[in-house]
Design a protein around this nucleic acid. Structure first.
Lengths: 340, 340
DNA sequence: CTGTTAGCGCTTTCAC
DNA sequence: GTGAAAGCGCTAACAG
């Protein structure tokens, strides 16, 4: 058996209360001599407090849950890394929950985390959540009085902090770069239209077009699904549209586009330029390294974890919206039409 | 406040003991009528047992810890996915621990998991663990009486199950394929020499050479570090060695080699063939899709989690060595010297 | 200065 | 059939 506080009590002759006090540094009126005795005994007996017992009395487990759709997805694994590093550093534990974008599973995880005594949740809402599902999750969280932070999604009046990236800005800078390079007919491969982040990128795209006096042409917008397959389909669709550049709303669909272009012997960037979004590490390795918009995912994980821990520690009720700026990473997949 | 068993007692008029019995289906002599009343009340009051309290009395938290070096590494994120899916399915919780290959952190995590009441650990020992460090970790696990399973590493007499892949076989089939394709001078980019899995692949390589009567030439072996940079260095080293193929002991270093070859305008596979190991999803996307040896990583996670849970449930002491077979994934990076 | 006591929410034994 | 009571390992009033 592990040593308990009782063992120390027996060993030293003091009561468990005294032991508890000195081991938690709450013993102001206790002489250093007995403090020392107790601490020595604790070390000698290799005492490690049972966190389950502490959790029960304090109603605090120093544990947070991370609810994401899929760790094996680069975005989430980077995020998870940031979260885990931060938790670890601050002495918190991390329970990992993969929803596979299944709303039911999401709800069930929230409940499980509450039952396990998690103190808070870092929450990446599943992609298929419409208004109703979103409200359901929010409602459950609220009824459980579970503190949480939304990652990669902002909801008005949700009574929580959120960490998001400025996707409008991202859409804007990517498009601006294309425009500055002389491109005028730009095909977009968006994400699913029900995703706010995709819509934001599109708004940024439109804003840039507008600023440069380029008319917005709906026929140049292809609704993708953030995967390779839709990137391929998009290229086929664009073939007849006389474009000089493609802005893919994530790197994955950019890879699909990349391949399809190669397949049609279309040179990147000479014949068609390509710009992505995410900056997955592979983008750098492609034969034509991909110019893309980087999201500081790891840092978002760190920020989310820090904020949640702070809210938990201070019981503060001041919710923040932590905004990250995307950054254009210029590599070789965009041709400069003006200066060549 | 959440409803407790007491609330149900008050609400129904029965005692907490009775409530507990029927809710845990241990109420043999209790009439269906009161069972029903209690179950209904539980539902009505939305009762969810406090797992922390249960953990304290049962000394069981239905939680396992996963100790890996880095979730953001594809290998581990796939593994984690397999583990998480399995835990979830069996009603277990997963605490994630990233050691960043730091031995001290590894030890500290083991202790933390024990303190948190984790019931068992899925353990991927950090890459820098020499004999002494390995023994230290094993010793700690043992002194904590913490059941565990080793992933991706087998240790004789370790008193635990392990799930590993047959790396010798992997090294063998990759080399055999190269040999069957007519290659005779094959450069190897290994992993660090202190890693057993790299040494195993090398042994497999040697075995294949031997079987085909090709002499083993030490000058064709380059010790890499499983990263891109060492893949690049390896190619520079091989430039003067008159080889027709490179066997890279992981995909990452294969990418490095790939790039360096491109840089030197060496055509893959026409001038030099390249074969990798791992089958990271990106290998398929390369301009010259990479022929490689696939490890069933997700399945390994599933198997590890299943085995651990089973050992935990049955308190069985029969340790198993679960061996996975690697598989050759033939794509376009190896030229057939014989039939062209 | 230190010990006694109650209690966190639950399970389990034993008695009625 | 059901309830009282003890106890899991710990914290935190409160006494003294």
């Amino acid at each position: 058996m592990r040593t308990t506080i009782k063992d120390i009590a027996n060993y030293t002759g003091f009561s468990v209360a005294t032991i508890s006090l000195v081991l938690n540094n709450k013993a102001e009126k206790i002489p250093d001599s007995t403090k020392k005795k107790i601490k020595d005994a604790a070390k000698e007996l290799n005492y490690h407090p049972n966190q389950v017992a502490i959790g029960l009395v304090k109603k605090r487990t120093q544990t947070i849950g991370l609810v994401i759709s899929d760790v094996s997805n680069t975005f989430f694994s980077m995020l998870t890394k940031g979260v885990e590093d931060t938790c670890r550093q601050q002495g918190w534990n991390l329970i990992l929950c993969n929803t596979n974008d299944d709303h039911e599973r999401e709800l069930s995880y929230i409940q499980v985390l509450a039952d396990q005594g998690a103190d808070g949740i870092l929450f990446c809402m599943s992609k298929d959540s419409d208004k109703k599902k979103t409200q359901e999750s929010l409602q459950l969280l609220k009824s459980l009085k579970m503190p949480f932070i939304m990652i990669d999604r902002y909801i008005e009046n949700a009574n929580c902090s959120s960490v998001v990236v400025d996707h409008m800005k991202g859409g804007y800078i990517a498009t601006e770069y294309l425009l500055e390079s002389g491109h005028r007919r730009i095909g977009c491969i968006t994400g699913p239209n029900n995703l706010e982040d995709s819509m934001e990128r599109l708004r940024g795209h439109q804003k840039a077009l507008w600023k440069y006096g380029v008319p917005y042409d709906e026929r140049l917008i292809f609704e993708g699904k953030y995967d390779r397959e839709s990137g391929e389909r998009a290229v086929k669709y664009f073939l007849s549209k006389n474009i000089t550049a493609i802005f893919s709303f994530n790197d994955m669909s950019a890879y699909g586009a990349y391949h399809e272009l190669k397949k049609h012997k279309i040179k990147i960037p000479n014949e068609i330029s390509l710009i992505g979004y995410d900056d997955i590490f592979f983008s750098e390795i492609l034969d034509v390294p991909l110019t893309t918009v980087r999201q500081p995912v790891y840092d978002m994980g760190v920020a989310g974890a820090k904020q949640l821990i702070e809210e938990l520690d201070n019981k503060t009720e001041s919710y923040r919206k932590i905004l990250f700026q995307p950054k254009l990473i210029i590599r070789d997949s965009v041709a400069d039409l003006l200066h060549t």
